[in-house]
Amino acid sequence: MPAEEKKEVKGTTISRRQFFKQAGAVSAAVAAAAASSVIAPEEAEARTTFAEFFQNNYRLMTDEEKKEAIARLEQRHSEEYGKKVTVDGSPAMKDVLFGYALNIQKCIGCRRCVYACVKENNQSRHDTEIQWIRVIRMEKGNFTVDDMDKGYPNSPNESFGIQVGGNAYKNAGVALEGQHYYQPERVPEKDAFYFPVQCMQCEKPPCVKVCPVRTTYRDPDGIVVIDYNWCIGCRMCMGACPYWARRFNWGDPNLPAEEMNPKTHYLGNRPRMRGVVEKCTFCLQRTRKGRYPACVEVCPVGARKFGNLLDPESEVRKILDRKKVFRLKADMNTYPKFFYFID
């Protein structure tokens, strides 16, 4: 019974596909001629969503099915955004395991990485705004040496004449307590440092473990990817992620056509739809072609470093060899491949 159903599903997709092929030439011409037409994208969307509805998890598709899914998306997005959009489906490179290192002493908190990422990865620009990187401004705190000698409480009635040290009754802080919405005139500021956080591409990712439909999985190059077309939007992964790296498309994403980055990857920066989760992929549409991620390239102070963890000559391995390195929330035992380092 299930097998029959599968066949049926496949049959429908193929017949749809044939229909596209016939209509392909016509619609391509239409797209080129009337890119501004309002009707074309909607039609394209309606035609493809039906076929997309029945498609399988990307990891389980045959090469043929992958090609079809990609062709479908390319055609639709080209029409929708009025320019040639390519959807890459290239698999992980062999003998590559991506790692990332960030020099926390150098980061000046300018947030350029945040916006480079938005431009590269086609995130929703507003309502709701989606950013994959969050930079936290942190300050030196109030657990001071001076306070150590002070008694608490100050009232002689309660102190029993014994000092307890001024910090004993204070609350412990959070490692990551700071300001997310800082907006000074200039950065870096005195007495502040900045802590950018994004997906750590954990080796033992809690988000992958909790996914009930395995729409999110770890690719051989260590990148945790999402098949946006298979995601059911249950947000278990968002609850499980210790780094708050995942974002949700609460509504239809707002991506202006002129700002859309047409060079996309199926598992990476292709335009998303409403109701699915997305996250940083170390720009796999770039990195699987050998190029640095957008955030690495844009960092004005060179605090971000990227490379192949399997290659001892890579920048990341050299940093692991030579610098003081720490990992965020290492006790979560997630084995993040995103390292913070200091000189």
Partner: peptide
Amino acid sequence: QDRVMKDKEFVV
């Protein structure tokens, strides 16, 4: 920043 990092006690 070095000092602040030490205060934060991120484990190196």
